[in-house]
């Protein structure tokens, strides 16, 4: 989990640098500071379990085991990106690791997840689907519609709310009545658990409980992971809406530093081991960047392919 979080952190930081340097285009939402949620969730899942993600989804895919080469090439908009350069940061999907897609529309995953759950139940495959969403998305209708149906039909879904205190740039207190997202679970008769989203073990434990319950056929759960977004809503966000102290406070609760301290205290990590892990991750990211830089752009005719499955219709 330590290496996993470091992988997410260093990947996101590299992506930020590349964006600042003009190598990566578009709107970029990174998850620096929120790594414990992605990695804690992924560690609680089987490789064949599904994940539905958000606009801030790189970390979820990296944690689920997605290829850094494919992801980086996609962020560059290159032909050999996971989605052939047609998805981009907010719409990346990787079927090979059960990553059913980032989604640029908040809370969309909350209604797709019960459908995935229906299919799991129909196929009796024993899988679980996790849908990530933010505290802001919890105020949208699809969140309530999705939780209601998943609870009604006891579907194997885990709803994971990453509460980073900001609905884009609007404070949680100004957007969510009642404050707690986890408490909303009670209205639907399912377990709702708030957890420290900067403690990877706490996230892992909460999601493990929820996933076991789902696999038993007892239905969905809601886990609210409280975390801190170190960076702006998007890259380049001046963040005039929030106190500068917040990111500093987040850094004091750095999920990676916390786990590292605990591991060192238990003598399970020393300087040499930590350096080896870091060097390995950096080499992997360097390789992904080199791969993306050296990859071709999609061919012009690719703009009109993949519109329909099987049927090459005239339009």
């Amino acid at each position: 989990m330590y290496a996993g979080m470091l992988r997410v952190r260093l990947f996101e930081e590299r992506v930020r640098e590349l964006f600042a340097g003009g190598r990566i285009p578009g709107f970029l939402h990174t998850s620096v500071g929120q790594e414990a949620v992605a990695v804690g969730v992924a560690a609680a899942l089987r490789p064949d379990d599904y994940v539905l993600s958000t606009h801030r989804g790189h970390g979820h895919l990296v944690a689920k085991g997605g290829s850094l080469r494919g992801l980086m090439a996609e962020l560059y908009g290159k032909a050999n990106g996971i989605c052939h350069g047609k998805g981009g940061t907010m719409h990346i999907a990787d079927a090979s690791v059960g990553y059913l897609g980032a989604n640029g529309v908040l809370a969309a995953g909350c209604v797709l997840a019960p459908g995935v759950g229906l299919s799991i139940k129909h196929r009796k495959s024993g899988q679980v689907v996790v849908t990530f969403f933010g505290d802001g998305a919890a105020n949208r209708g699809p969140f309530h519609e999705g939780v209601n149906m998943a609870a009604l039909w006891k579907l194997p879904v885990v709803f994971v709310c990453e509460n980073n205190r900001w609905a884009s740039t609007t404070a949680h207190a100004l957007s969510a009545a009642g404050g707690s997202i986890a408490a909303r679970a009670a209205g639907y008769g399912i377990p709702g658990e708030a957890t420290d989203g900067n403690d990877v073990l706490a996230v892992w434990e909460a999601v493990t409980r929820a996933a076991e319950r789902a696999r038993r056929g007892d239905g969905p759960s809601l886990v609210e992971a409280h975390t801190v977004r170190w960076v702006g809503h998007f890259e380049g966000d001046p963040q005039a809406y929030r106190p500068r102290t917040e990111a500093a406070e987040g850094r004091q609760r750095d999920p990676i530093a916390r786990l590292e301290a605990a591991l060192r205290e238990q003598h399970r990590l020393d300087d040499a081991h930590a350096a080896r892990i870091r060097d390995g991750v950096i080499a992997e990211i360097d390789d992904a960047v080199a791969h993306a830089e050296g990859s071709p752009l999609p061919q012009p005719h690719d703009a009109l392919t993949d519109l329909f499955a099987h049927y090459p219709w005239r339009d």
Binding site: Y50, L100, V111, L112, P114, G115, S119, G146, N148, M149
Partner: peptide
């Protein structure tokens, strides 16, 4: 199991259909 009555939530149950279609139904 194959004829599913839903709550009144068009956005919700359409999403459920799409999610199910993505993974095999």
């Amino acid at each position: 199991r194959r004829v599913v009555d839903t709550p009144i939530c068009e956005s919700g149950f359409t999403g459920v259909g799409i999610g199910a279609a993505m993974v095999g139904l």
